[in-house]
């Protein structure tokens, strides 16, 4: 209100006999200037443009990845060698780009193996930590846990990677596998689990805190122990939101690149390697064979391939696949959210 007109002159107060409210001699013109109105209306469109830019970005990312990814299968301007078929890429485990084999299944399988393993660690511990923070911990511990999670989520992935490389890998190597490299799904999954646990913990804590206190009281008034109340009432009641927490954690794990790349060993032939390694028990073989995932292969090979080559284009197709998987997970959380309200 910068444009108040300075026209507010008041009548001198009259004698008490005719007292009443002092009257305005001239009505003040409290009006917005034209500029002000124009700005008010114009802002809406500027802000809308910002929002549409955000929306457009997603379209843009999808478009560019799709174009480059499609170039792996369809001859396009800029292609420098023979295209691959859909089958050869998505349904084959044979990855030997130098020889024209572009089967990406090892990476897809690697991604799901390492993230599944990470979720297996992070989901139960994350939900338990959430219950702990929301329902069991004394106030000082609650504060401490929040800060611990804030710090864990803030640590950069390369620092997680260097920790795995310099602390965990040598440790595991000494403990179990004197000579064999300890790199592989096991250590990668452990590190990924620590990276996604803050996401799960914070969402799980919210889920438990938003449950009405009457549920907890109701079950304890019947003689439930603390844990019976948590296990039989609180966890079932919070289930949709707990699942959402885990799906979002999984999404984070699937997209993580650098930390995993630094410790997983980066071997696209891991399936073959695992079959050959007969001298170990199957579990150890699975956990400690150098492997690769969609993201690690992108980090590993993108700098070494020429734009326009089928190899390079297949890498972009892998990026697109990765993005589509993430989007599916986001949509899944929407579904879960709706289930909660139903």
């Amino acid at each position: 209100m910068d444009d108040l007109l300075p026209a507010t002159t008041l009548d001198a107060p009259g004698p008490p006999a005719q007292a009443g409210p002092a009257r305005l001699r001239t009505a003040p013109l409290f009006r917005h200037s034209r500029l002000n109105r124009l700005a008010d209306r114009g802002t809406r469109f500027v802000l809308l443009a910002c929002t549409l830019l955000v929306v457009g970005l997603i379209g843009g990312i999808l478009y560019f990845l799709a174009i480059r990814g499609a170039a792996a299968f369809i001859p396009m301007a800029g292609n420098t060698d023979k295209v691959a078929t859909f089958r050869q890429v998505f349904l084959s485990t044979n990855w030997d780009p130098g020889d024209g084999h572009f089967g990406i299944l090892p990476f897809v399988a690697g991604t799901f193996a390492v993230t599944g393993l990470a979720l297996l660690i992070a989901a139960p511990t994350g939900v338990l930590a959430g219950v702990f923070i929301a329902k069991v911990a004394p106030p000082w511990m609650r504060t401490l846990m929040r800060q611990v999670m804030d710090l864990l989520v803030g640590i950069p992935s390369v620092v997680y990677g260097i920790f795995g490389l310099t602390v965990i890998l040598p440790l595991v190597g000494h403990a179990w596998l004197a000579d064999a490299p300890a790199a592989g799904f096991g250590v990668s999954a452990a590190i990924l689990a620590v990276m996604i646990v803050p996401t799960i913990v914070s969402l799980a804590t919210d889920a438990f805190e938003s449950l009405p206190a009457s549920l907890d009281e109701g079950s304890q008034a019947l003689g439930s122990t603390r844990w019976q109340s948590i296990w039989r009432v609180l966890i079932p009641a919070a289930r949709p939101r707990l699942l959402t927490a885990c799906v979002l954690g999984l999404g984070r794990a699937i997209g993580e690149a650098m930390a995993v790349q630094m410790v997983i060993g980066n071997n696209p032939q891991w399936i073959l390697l695992m079959r050959q390694a007969t001298d170990q028990t199957p579990v150890l073989r699975f956990l400690f064979t150098p492997a690769a995932t969609l993201t690690t292969e992108l980090v590993q090979e993108l700098p070494n391939t020429a734009a326009g080559s089928t190899w390079n284009n297949v890498l972009f197709a892998m990026g697109l696949l990765l993005y589509l998987i993430t989007m599916l997970l986001i949509l899944a959380t929407r579904r879960l959210g709706r289930q909660e309200h139903a």
Binding site: I61, L248, I254, E256, L322, T326
Partner: peptide, 8 residues
């Protein structure tokens, strides 16, 4: 967009 993997 917030959940887009940084490698993407």
């Amino acid at each position: 967009l917030a959940a887009t993997p940084s490698i993407v």
